[in-house]
Amino acid sequence: MSGHIVPKKTYYTIFLLLMVLLAVTVLIAYLDLDHATGIGGLNIIVALSIAFTKMMLVVLYFMHMKWSSKLTWVFGGASILWLAIMLVITLADYFSRGWVMFTNR
């Protein structure tokens, strides 16, 4: 449980990493990756990937998930699964909105 003692150095390293990732996020926002590479939506993919990485760093180190019991992992995993449920089912509405099901022809 919370018994694990983490050296201060780890915390500082993670903090530094988070700050670097923050800087990268801001930098990327000024570049038009979609146009430069021709891959549609690349900007948002990169931004969300960085955000996900930052979240995982916070969860694993600052919130001690890395040293926690399997039960804690189940609960942590469930919260990500539930976020996925919300996003996937909501997007299912948006992606299928233009479809036409029945016509008179």
């Binding site: 089912i89 299912a92 509405d93 948006y94 992606f95 299928s96 909105r97 479809w99 099901m101």
Partner: peptide, 9 residues
Amino acid sequence: GQSAYAGII
């Protein structure tokens, strides 16, 4: 105004 397919599901 939700998609009809989402409605069915």
